[in-house]
């Protein structure tokens, strides 16, 4: 890579920044991945989970039952 791109210069050139990028990237990826797979799971299991039928059985609107 003869002419390094500005992104490369910014993220990878200094080691402590690169380490931070890796950690933050892992953190962010895991959050996004978990959220996305939960969403896929919920769409595959539509109307089968407790949260889909819970409204039928909750009497008063206290939010403490989960």
């Amino acid at each position: 890579m003869p002419a390094a791109s500005p992104i490369y210069n910014f993220l990878v050139r200094r080691n402590y920044v690169f380490l931070g990028v890796i950690f933050a990237g892992a953190f962010g990826f895991e959050m996004a991945f978990d959220k996305g797979s939960d969403r896929i799971w919920d769409s595959l299991n539509k109307d089968r989970q407790w949260k889909d039928i819970r409204a039928k059985y909750v009497q008063d609107a206290d939010g403490d039952d989960e």
Binding site: L44, N45, R48, Q49, W50, I53
Partner: peptide
Amino acid sequence: WTKTFDHQALR
């Protein structure tokens, strides 16, 4: 593989 219990049936 991708299905949970039918929670109405569990009840």
